[in-house]
Amino acid sequence: MLRISKLPIAIFFAIIICFPWIAKHIPAIGHYPDLMVFAGIYCLITIGLSLLMGYAGQISLCQAAFYGIGAYASGILTVRYGMNPWLCMLIGMGISALVALLVGAPSLKLKGHYLAMATLAFGIIVFIIFNEEVELTGGPDGMRGIPGLSLFGFQFDSVNKYYYLVWAFVFAAFIFTINIIQSRTGRALRAIHSSETAASAMGVNISRFKIIVFIYGAVLASLAGSLYAHYLNFINPSTFDLFVSIKLLIMIALGGMHQIWGAIIGAFLITFLSYEWLHFFGEFEIIVYGGILLLVTIFLPDGLAGIPGIIKGWFRN
């Protein structure tokens, strides 16, 4: 039976809770909570992507588009129309869900490379819209002046406050997704991954389940986009381009697609590599990414999350 043990989850989130306090006392990592906000935002997207790709076996190269739809929904509605940020967040998620339904219904009938191409094309279209609708989105210059978040008069105005807000969302999404994985829905998704023929012979409505997880992934990405916009108070199209979609894919490939932990590990690693550890390489960063991805796929097909399984295997022999 697929059981995701609770202890590592508890330990992980305990560390997350204590981390800002630890970071405060070690000057060398004093700015890490800021990076962790970004890692958390990426985690939200990769958790959805992992369910879609790792469990249901459907590739998507347009998660950055939903990420952008969320960010721009929040940006445009708050800056241009002065609406409540939380409401904008929900509206963004609603728009993303609707778009995912409209895009997913025809394209999820495609398989493998074709699905990859269809989602890639959609991602590019959305990116072009962000760039060209200058009056609405500010075009390539981006949008500034997006307000921060507050709840009942409590302002999320410091890094640490925002850190806890983002990680609360990650925690909720993580638990929700784990519940899905360990249920009838999760079994149906894994069944689709393994054999669509047999799954439909068991009464699993394949297209319905594919669309549901696609929408779920889009909603999480949209939420991540809104959180990003309110954190930086500034957005521009390049944050949501094709390379970001690919980077998200690299995250779950690196972390391990077939385990939900892979989404978290991958998001962390890539965030820290790209914002911190790989600065040294400058323009050559992309080559290092490629190298890492190559090594992982060759030597660790189950990603970094697969390492405990390998070690367990050694002990058993």
Binding site: M1, R184, R190, A198, V204
Partner: peptide, 23 residues
Amino acid sequence: VELFDNMTVLENVMVGCHTRIRS
């Protein structure tokens, strides 16, 4: 044979129950 080979024996049968118990 078209079993779901990424799952256990029990889970395979549980997928069979898919349409009978919904949530």
